[in-house]
Simulated scan of single mutants.
Amino acid sequence: MAIVWLLIIGAAAGFFATRIMNIQANVVTTVAIGIGGALIGGLVVRMLLTAMGMLGGLIGAVLGALVLIWLWQTYVGR
């Protein structure tokens, strides 16, 4: 089922991409362009989400440390 879904999404993506770039291509080429674009785009998006996930973890860790410092100063530092 995943292959069928990839073909459908690839065909749609290839259709839109060929129309945006004003390229005349047959159906097989359009689907191949779409599938290739989906694979490349999927990898790029996955890398961006991973990098942002790491950054989000760092931000969360800093915020957590700030809360701990505030709690320490408020209740233990007295």
Rank of each mutant, 00 (worst) to 15 (best):
L66N: 01
I35K: 01
I33S: 01
M1S: 11
V27W: 12
A11P: 00
G42C: 09
L55M: 11
A65N: 01
G10F: 07
T29W: 03
G36S: 10
L39I: 05
L48A: 12
L7E: 13
M47Y: 09
W70H: 03
I23E: 12
V67Q: 13
G64S: 04
W72T: 00
G34T: 03
A38F: 15
R78W: 07
R46A: 15
G64C: 12
G64D: 02
M1C: 15
G57M: 04
G10I: 00
G56D: 13
V45F: 14
W70G: 10
I33K: 00
A65E: 01
W5S: 10
V28P: 00
V76N: 07
W70P: 00
N26H: 12
V28T: 13
I9Q: 10
V27E: 06
L48V: 08
I20V: 15
I9A: 15
G34L: 10
M52V: 09
T29F: 06
V31G: 02
G34N: 03
L71T: 06
A32M: 08
A13H: 08
V28W: 10
G10S: 03
N26M: 04
M54K: 12
A11W: 09
A25R: 09
Y75W: 10
V44I: 13
L39C: 08
V4D: 13
R78L: 13
V45W: 15
M52N: 03
R78Q: 05
G56A: 10
L71A: 12
L71P: 00
G41Q: 02
A38Q: 11
A32S: 08
A38G: 13
I59F: 14
L43I: 15
N22S: 07
M1T: 06
Y75I: 00
G53N: 02
I8N: 01
I9R: 09
M1V: 12
G34A: 05
A65I: 06
L7P: 00
L68S: 06
R19Y: 07
V45Q: 12
M21Q: 05
G42A: 08
A65T: 05
G34D: 01
M21L: 09
G60W: 06
V31S: 02
A61I: 10
M47G: 03
L71Q: 09
W5Y: 06
W5T: 14
W72V: 09
L6R: 01
G10Y: 04
V44K: 01
G53D: 06
W70I: 03
L7S: 10
R19P: 01
L48W: 08
G42Y: 14
N26I: 04
V67C: 13
L63T: 04
I8Q: 02
A51C: 05
